[in-house]
Design a binder for these strands. Structure first.
Lengths: 217, 217
DNA sequence: AATCATTAAAGAAATTTTTCTTTAATGAAA
DNA sequence: TTTCATTAAAGAAAAATTTCTTTAATGATT
């Protein structure tokens, strides 16, 4: 079957996954006052191939100079911009349990362009409280607040069995993207962006390497 | 160049990433009393191709029955075993800040075979406290405790700039695997397993889809 | 009992991602 | 000034992963 349209100009997801680390590295170099950095240096830091770095950076407007490398400042500026870390987007978080409150405490999210406007839960013990200056509301109040505030992302940190219910509510509320931290997979309309982040997948990979994989010799 | 040895029998990492979700789905079905599940059902739940599911499951000992599907109980049992979720491994966590304490609160880790024996920090405010029954020690005490307890994994949840220092200590302490939650990349000997889990990568992917990617039409 | 529809499984093909190779540029050293 | 070594960049090749195709099995339906 002929495919008449696809993602235009899509940057590979593995590339995007690596970029925040390039950025973190460059930010560190910037603080240390280093002006240029070569793909070899970056690759060495990341334990990957140098051409991988140049390929990845070639998706942006950054250009390197032969025998010199890339300008550190340019990497920081262009990459933050490219990754969407330089504009602030608003989010609601549903599920103010342990993982939820950890995210509320994480200043890194703010640093990378995500502002959590409010949190929601059903637990009377947490409702009304403030976690790191973010107020926790009863989930029934979500609809009204979503109207007032310009919120485009919903973060799901409830138990897996409630993920779909929360997702349905978020879609009804007009949210554009959902960051799902449960192992459950949610069904949403095609135009809603879903990103699943399951910590346990990483655990599974570690265990697999520890228990199964024999070493290369 | 001829490669004389490689990973033997390596299961693709994307496969392992998907497996915890298969498992979570199967556990849900088991609770509901469903006895069999087809690859189509699983694929529909995951929003992936059915053959992907059969391929993934073919790496395990699970076999399906034509026109019936896979036995739910078998998926649960074999997958938990396969993913290493059915034996308990001990870990130390360094960095009892917001993310660190969230992990300490997360019962899911225990459910999936990871037991955090102790936590470490340098902040006097947290040292001596117990977080969800896990005691927080000063990092200097790590060496002694590592001797006593059979700990194979170290979890790094310190600020990025301290990641390498902590990793070096962990390696010196004889840890076999490191789960690194910072965006920094750490250098360790080849025989140490490192798994990097950077939340901000996921954020980058969402932003990229929100800001850059045009929809297919 | 015969047909049909659904399914797992295996292998082929297509796609995606990574690694390798070549080229040209240029700062540093001789 | 000339040579040398390092680098980015572009394209080719290789490797990994996903999707497609075919086959055979079998429960359900007629």
């Amino acid at each position: 079957m002929v495919q008449y349209s696809k993602k235009i100009q899509g940057v590979p997801e593995p590339t995007i996954r690596r970029m925040p680390s390039y950025l973190a590295f460059a930010e560190g170099l910037l603080r240390k006052g280093q002006q240029f950095v070569s793909s070899t240096q970056i690759a060495n830091y990341m334990n990957i191939d140098p051409t991988q770095v140049t390929k990845d950076l070639s998706y942006t407007t950054i250009v390197g100079k032969t025998r010199v490398g890339y300008e550190v400042k340019a990497i920081v500026d262009v990459l933050s911009e490219f990754l969407g870390f330089s504009v602030m987007d608003n989010a609601f978080l549903v599920g103010a349990g342990s993982l939820g409150s950890a995210l509320l405490h994480d200043s890194g999210l703010n640093h990378f362009g995500l502002n959590i406007e409010a949190a929601f839960d059903v637990n009377p013990a947490t409702i009304g409280r403030k976690i790191n200056d973010v107020e926790v509301f009863h989930i029934d109040q979500f609809r009204d607040l979503a109207q007032e505030l310009n919120v485009i992302m919903g973060i799901i940190t409830v138990p897996a069995e409630n993920a779909q219910t929360v997702a349905d509510l978020m879609v009804a509320w007009g949210i554009k993207a959902i960051w799902n931290f449960t192992p459950a997979r949610i069904k949403v309309p095609d135009d809603i962006i879903v990103q699943n982040t399951t910590l346990y997948s990483n655990l599974a990979i570690i265990f697999n390497k520890l228990h199964h994989e024999r070493k290369e010799e």
